[in-house]
Design a protein around this nucleic acid. Structure first.
Length: 439
RNA sequence: GGUCCGGUAGUGUAGUGGUUAACAUGCCAGUCUGUCACACUGGAGAUCGUGGGUUCAAGUCCCGUCCGACCGCCA
């Protein structure tokens, strides 16, 4: 017998079928028992009358605990008086395949799941039983698939770069070190150098979806020490605008796909709707953005070469209100705020770089890369970097390197804003932070 | 790293020095003719994060510590 998901039950009216699922709720009345069953695709009511004939089933149901798993055989009927999907399942056999303990460590009722986040993370396997959480990971799956589709259509090659590195990677964020047969090695903080190597290898266009590690003791709702980074890199470009064009096109495709596949579920479960972005995301120059924030919100951040959280939120607010866009590119940052490998525009002396902000938070950093080794070395020295430890990287540039650029995209940050949940921990299967390495 | 922020039944909260620590929800038992967040009645369940101190008396005040939240750093 083929496994039947609860969402498809309407196809089986009148038929004898076998179901397996969690016990979502038990309502044991005087003359009838109702058991709500649940699987990842939906819920259904199972109804058992209390009588001599059903004695065995009645006994099982009376002793059922919520969140136990059962296997039941019976017939599914259309039944208008049942509010839950207008159907009910009448079993002739019930087997408890796993019995749950009576009390759960967290509340997972759909109308009352107020348990604190830290406790929910301790019991993540239970927390994830909530439909809203399942939906987030369904969304993640669709997002990754849509991105892959887009890249494959556009002649990108998928790479898997190493996460164990012999030298600490580039950007100044702290890296983890670990023992490696008596040597010290580092966990990759970004696939940056290796996707650029792929440019040197003549792969034209590459992408990677994989983990990255940051050894920052950041206790915030939008940081993690391990998270999934989506990276891509493309050759033969003339400016960072081509990279933005690509990201924009990809994102619209992703959002359309997500909205199409789970838009209805999202509306029902989260009481919100996805907003599909229009083409031509606003592209605001960094210094113009600073001025906009000052003129419109009378706010000046402490650093003149970068944004703080408040400024990110305000420029997004401006974009939403005045430009009708949840996405906004901030472009042409000063070199001071960027890593050494971002290309500097000779005319403006600003980097050919961009951040993509989405509903108040940065989800992407991208740029045209400096591919001329002499300039690259000069910029590395300007950032006080040691050319010897960078030699393996600089080597990529010695024998012909296409002009290229790309971006890194925080998958979890994107999902967090897409679903409008408060924390990156809610969109991470198992969150890792400064004080959390379990479960 | 910073914060005249928080830690109290399974869970979420109330409780500003004085009997038996309260409420909601969950759990258990009973009652209930089809419920659908079922309803009703009753019951169990808390050495108040942890270590020390002040006091006749500490969930409550003080100090340390751990964990969390928010901010910062960072992305």
């Amino acid at each position: 017998m083929k496994k039947i998901l609860f969402k498809d039950l309407a196809n089986y009216y009148g038929q004898e079928i076998e179901l397996q699922g969690f016990v979502d709720k038990v309502r044991d009345l005087q003359y009838v028992q109702f058991v709500i069953l649940r699987d990842s695709s939906g819920k259904v009511q199972m109804t058992i009358e209390k009588n001599e004939e059903n004695k065995e089933l009645n006994e099982i149901v009376t002793n059922l605990t919520k969140e136990s798993t059962i296997l039941a055989k019976g017939i599914i009927y259309q039944q208008d008086k049942v509010k839950l999907r207008g159907m009910e399942f009448i079993p002739n056999k019930i087997e408890v395949t796993s019995r749950s303990e009576e009390e759960l460590p967290i509340d997972i009722l759909d109308y009352n799941n107020k348990s604190k986040q830290d406790l929910r993370l301790d019991n993540r396997f239970l927390d994830l039983r909530l439909e809203k959480n399942y939906l987030i990971f369904k969304g993640q799956t669709i997002a990754e698939m849509a991105m892959r589709d887009y890249w494959i259509e556009n002649d990108f090659i998928e790479i898997h770069s190493p996460k164990i590195l012999g030298t600490a990677s580039e950007t100044g964020a702290e890296v983890f070190d670990l023992k490696y047969f008596g040597k010290k090695v580092f966990l990759a903080q970004s696939p940056q150098f290796y996707k650029q190597m792929a440019m040197g290898a003549g792969f034209n266009n590459v992408f990677e979806i994989g983990p990255v590690f940051r050894a920052e003791k950041s206790h915030t709702a939008y940081h993690a020490t391990e998270f999934t980074s989506v990276d891509c890199e493309m050759s033969w470009i003339k400016s960072h605008h081509e990279v933005m064009d690509l990201e924009e096109e990809k994102l619209i495709k992703v959002m359309k796909k997500i909205s199409n596949d789970i838009g209805e579920d999202f509306k029902r479960v989260f009481k919100k709707e996805f907003v599909i972005p229009k083409e031509n995301f606003p592209r605001i120059k960094f210094y113009d953005a600073k001025k906009i924030i000052q003129d419109n919100y009378n706010y000046v951040g402490e650093k003149d070469y970068d944004f703080n959280r408040r400024e990110e939120e305000l420029i997004c607010l401006y974009s939403r209100k005045k430009l009708n866009s949840d996405f906004v590119f901030v472009i042409d940052y000063p070199f001071e705020a960027r890593p050494f490998y971002h290309m500097i525009d000779e005319k403006t002396k600003l980097t050919k770089s961009f951040d993509l902000l989405y509903k108040g938070i940065e989800i992407t950093t991208g740029a045209q890369r400096e591919h001329r080794i002499d300039v690259l070395k000069k910029q590395a020295l300007a950032k006080d970097m040691n050319l010897d430890t960078l030699d393996f990287y600089l080597n990529f540039f010695r024998y012909g390197m296409p002009p290229h650029g790309g971006y890194g995209f925080g998958l979890t940050r994107f999902l967090m804003r897409l679903f409008e949940v408060d924390s990156i921990r809610d969109v991470t299967f198992l969150y890792r932070g400064p004080n959390r390495v379990t479960p």
